[in-house]
C-alpha cells in the first residue's frame, strides 16, 4: 500500500504540492489526472524517493520513504517499477542490456541464461518481438521506447508500477496500445499501479480510482462513476476540456 500523508513540496517560490494526502490500496490502479505542469510527476517521484517532501510523509508498505537510509531505499526500489515519460532508456546500451538492468536481484542479473529468458519474457509481455533486443534505443519509435521502458520496469517483478505519462507524445492508436498494455499487466502481474496522465480517456480506461491534482491540491478522488458525478467545478472543467462528458458517461468507464 502507498500512503501520502500531508505532503508539501515547493521549488523556490513555486508551491507544487500543498498538503496532499492520498492512499493507493494494494492491487488497485490509481490514475492521477491533472493538467500539464501541475506536479503529477513530482508526486510520483516522491513515492520512489527521487524527491523528498518539504513536509509530510510518504509510506510504501509502511516504510517512510524520506526517512529510509540509502541501502534501505535501494532495497525498496527493487519492489517498485518506474516507467519514465520518455522511456529514459540508456543510449549507450542495446534493448537487451536496458531491460536486463531492470533485473534487480543481483544473482539473477549476472546469470546470463536467466537474463536472456527474462528479457524475452518481458518483451513478450509488452508485445514486442525478441528481435528488438539487439536494437539501440535510437533505432526505436516513440511507442516502442515506451514499451521497452515498461519492459525494463517489470523485469525485476515489482509489486508496484508507477507510470509517468505513459501515453504522452503518442498518436491515439499507440496510446490505446499502451493503455491496453497497462490493463493487461495489471491482470497478469497483479501489481499496484499509479498512472500519472493528462489523458482523461486513458485514465478512465485503466484505473480503478481516479484522483485529480489541481493547483497543488488533490481536488477529487474516487471511482470513475464518482468522478463523473462530481459537481466540483475544477473536475467538470478538466473533464469537459478533453471530451464530451455525455459520451463518456455513456460508456468509456472501466468495467
Amino acid at each position: 500500500m502507498i500512503e501520502l500523508r500531508n505532503v508539501s513540496k515547493r521549488f523556490i517560490e513555486n508551491v507544487v504540492l500543498d498538503d496532499i494526502s492520498l492512499d493507493v490500496k494494494a492491487g488497485e490502479t490509481l490514475a492521477l489526472l491533472g493538467p500539464s505542469g501541475v506536479g503529477k510527476s513530482v508526486l510520483l517521484k516522491h513515492i520512489i524517493g527521487l524527491i523528498r517532501p518539504d513536509k509530510g510523509d510518504v509510506l510504501v508498505d509502511g516504510l517512510s520513504v524520506p526517512r529510509l537510509k540509502r541501502r534501505e531505499l535501494s532495497q525498496l526500489r527493487t519492489r517498485i517499477g518506474y516507467v519514465f515519460q520518455n522511456g529514459a532508456l540508456f543510449d549507450s546500451m542495446d534493448v537487451f542490456d536496458n531491460i536486463r538492468l531492470g533485473i534487480t536481484n543481483e544473482e539473477n542479473y549476472r546469470d546470463d541464461d536467466f537474463a536472456k529468458a527474462r528479457v524475452t519474457e518481458c518483451l513478450r509481455l509488452v508485445n514486442l518481438s525478441p528481435d528488438v533486443q539487439i536494437k539501440m534505443p535510437a533505432e526505436l519509435s516513440g511507442g516502442m521506447r515506451k514499451r521497452v521502458g515498461i519492459a525494463r520496469a517489470i523485469a525485476g517483478k515489482p509489486t508496484y508500477l508507477l507510470y509517468d505519462e505513459p501515453t504522452s507524445g503518442l498518436d491515439p492508436v499507440n496510446s490505446d496500445v499502451i493503455d491496453g498494455l497497462i490493463e493487461r499487466l495489471q491482470h497478469e502481474l497483479g501489481v499496484t499501479s499509479v498512472v500519472v496522465t493528462h489523458d482523461v480517456r486513458g485514465a478512465f480506461r485503466v484505473a480503478d480510482r481516479i484522483a485529480l491534482l489541481w493547483q497543488a491540491k488533490i481536488r477529487a478522488v474516487g471511482t470513475s462513476d464518482q468522478i463523473l458525478a462530481s459537481r466540483d467545478e475544477a473536475v467538470q472543467q478538466f473533464l469537459e476540456r478533453d471530451f464530451d462528458l455525455e459520451a463518456l458517461q455513456g460508456g468509456g468507464k472501466k468495467t
Binding site: I48, S74, Q75, Y82, F90, L101, G156
Partner: peptide, 8 residues
C-alpha cells in the same frame, strides 16, 4: 533517475 529507480 532511471538508474536510481532501479535501486542502482
Amino acid at each position: 533517475d532511471a538508474l536510481e529507480s532501479l535501486g542502482r
